[in-house]
Design a protein around this nucleic acid. Structure first.
Length: 350
RNA sequence: UGGGGCGUCGUCAAGCGGUUAAGACCCGGGUUUUUGGAGCCCGUAUUCGAAGGUUCGAAUCCUUCCGCCCCAG
């Protein structure tokens, strides 16, 4: 059994649980950053104090009595996550690096490189708050974590069935409080460590390496309301940072990369009746048009009622919202659920 | 140059002799969050274009100056 150990509470407890279940567990940490440590970038996956993090993970592994290995995913991460992140933003879309990283690195390069490096294992496990179950024919299914506040299925909808088949999620049936409690009970120093990390502890724009390029902030009629320093500083739904004042708040409606324009409008214009998705990934057959499901267009959001539509001539699947939604962005993901079960999802387009 | 109007926070804008000088937008901070965002909370003019004057007391009344706008030539 291979378990991904980040140095945080969740993965530590995942490893703990597996060991206590009697599995023979090896802890692996994926290294995605090999530049200089920067203390000012705390709480980011990338650019965080690499040495300190590694030491922390290794200490945890020792405390748990597990063999520890670090797997060098620096190249893969740079190619498949960072480059994706850059090119998406600079194309005027809003990427989700976590979805990408899970698909390509955490559940991709990490176990693959570990295996190539001589680590044999039957299953790979992580501390995600999701559940994996098997259907009547023994095929793996992905379900939301039991703790509704911590469910991370949104970030994992892009895994393949093959990846899922080989993965276990020991925390899927636990709440965060139970995880912390278990960590404390077993004397894990990280039990009260703050949650979560971002992609990057600094401003994401710094990762793009794009020099400022002044452009116009315009309304839907094309009137210039202000100036900005580059369209990639903005994402649909964004309100802050526009520097444009009016009688009511303005939101970014869309970003025009070709013209380097940021189109803004009042809240009333920032609501969508539906969207298209493509690059879909499914664990179950694609629902037929007219199927009513619940969905998420964002990681932290109450589940929304939607109706599956038809595929258009470009092969994009239409999804209609029962209630209008705001803040959708092309490049983000929409994930479809039937109760707890993750059906699949795709990348938002329009 | 005549006639009229206006100058209150970065922006819009209440106020009309006694208010701690509203509010909105922007901005800043916090909260939240394994993506981007949103939401919510908090904060932000000792000062009202400037200088004098009247008054117990003025952003609110008077005078002059400065600036801007409209109409007329």
């Amino acid at each position: 059994m291979l378990v991904g150990l980040s140095g945080g509470v969740d993965s530590a407890v995942a490893a703990l649980v597996l060991r206590e279940c009697g599995y023979e567990v090896t802890a692996v940490r994926m290294r995605i950053y090999d530049g200089p440590d920067d203390p000012s970038l705390a709480y980011g996956c990338y650019g965080r104090g690499a040495a300190e993090e590694r030491a922390s993970a290794e200490a945890l592994a020792r405390h748990l009595g597990l063999p520890f290995r670090e797997v060098d995913c620096v190249e893969a991460w740079r190619e498949l996550v960072l480059e994706y992140f850059r090119s998406e933003y600079l194309a005027g879309r809003t990427p989700n690096p976590c979805v990408r990283c899970n698909q390509m690195i955490k559940f991709g390069a990490l176990p693959r490189l570990a295996e190539a490096g001589g680590l044999a294992f039957d299953f790979f496990a992580t501390g995600h708050y999701v559940r994996r179950t098997l259907d009547a024919e023994g095929r793996p299914e992905l379900r939301r974590g039991l703790d509704p506040r911590k469910d991370q299925s949104y970030f994992l909808y892009r895994l393949s069935r093959e990846q899922l088949a080989r993965t276990l999620f020991p925390l899927g049936g636990m709440t965060k409080a139970e995880v912390r409690g278990l960590a404390a009970a077993r004397g894990l120093a990280v039990h009260n460590q703050p949650d979560s990390q971002d992609l990057y502890g600094g401003r994401y724009v710094d990762l793009l390496g794009a020099p400022d390029r002044e452009g116009a902030v315009v309304d839907t009629r094309g009137r210039v309301l202000g100036r900005h320093r580059g369209f990639w500083h903005f994402t649909p739904g964004q309100r802050k940072g526009l520097g444009v004042c009016g009688p009511a708040p303005l939101y970014v409606l869309r970003v025009d990369a070709a013209r380097n324009e940021v189109v803004v409008g009042p809240a009333s214009e920032n609501a969508f009746e539906g969207c298209f998705i493509d690059a879909t990934n499914y664990f179950l057959p694609e629902p037929a048009p007219g199927t009513r499901l619940i969905a998420r267009m964002r990681s932290s959001q109450p589940l929304q009622e939607v109706v599956v539509g038809e595929r258009d001539e470009w092969g994009r699947l239409r999804i209609d919202f029962v209630r209008p939604m705001s803040g959708l962005a092309p490049g983000q993901s929409l994930v479809l659920y039937q109760d707890d079960l993750v059906i699949g999802g795709g990348i938002i387009q329009w």
